[in-house]
Design a protein around this nucleic acid. Structure first.
Lengths: 113, 113
DNA sequence: CTGTATCCAGTAGGATACTG
DNA sequence: CAGTATCCTACTGGATACAG
């Protein structure tokens, strides 16, 4: 019953898994944005700011593949697609906030902007 | 005294700061390795495994610039250089472990390996 | 032993134009 | 509106050889 039977390799792999899921340039922006409510494609596009459509689509697809966000298509004209956080997506805001809080505590200038 | 006076932008910037500090391919490996004790350049090189010297040097320099690790040179022949975690480096293992624990809880297969 | 120098391939991401 | 298609640049990281 050794509770600490965790190898360095497992920790590395686990940590890198998160990094690979949220490490791309705009993932955090999209995740935090959706944390404040469901959004349409164009809303995300304009609220994030300088992102290109191609990159936004790539980011959304990647987050969707990883199960962090859900994509809902409405059969309308003109098209309407809504993105929202899944429960898994919500849960990952925990580690994300841990990162923010670390900078707030240890790198006050970085958070200032 | 509004404690929750934190903007999305600050959270994004803060979170991205950590991501930029530990997001490169081998940063986590090096950090976790040094968390188990000071190491020489060649020891890191062999214990990490498939990393190239160029990339290892880049990784070490980057972590050093960010203040997460310390580099100590011994004036000997042959040369000897030791790397170790700084207090700041130790502190960042917190957010890192939060990521690992998230995978352990939400992505059991990813941690299995 | 601890790097540096050089060259190279793969990939992330941006700009722009076009489509169902 | 919600993307795709195409082209292009910059950067990351690997391989190999060389140096102090």
């Amino acid at each position: 019953m050794s509770a600490d039977n965790v190898t360095d390799l497992q920790m590395i792999r686990g940590t890198r898994t998160v990094l690979d899921m949220v490490g791309s340039k705009w993932s955090v922006d999209v995740l935090y944005l959706l944390a404040s409510g469901t959004r349409r494609y164009s809303e995300i596009f304009y609220e994030v700011g300088e992102i290109s459509k191609k990159t936004l689509t790539q980011t959304l697809r990647s987050l969707e593949r990883d199960g962090l966000i859900a994509r809902r298509v409405f059969a309308e004209v003109p098209p309407k697609v809504e993105y929202s956080l899944t429960p898994l997506g919500w849960s990952i805001t925990g580690p994300l906030m841990a990162m923010y809080e670390w900078t707030a505590e240890h790198m006050p200038d970085a958070a200032a902007a």
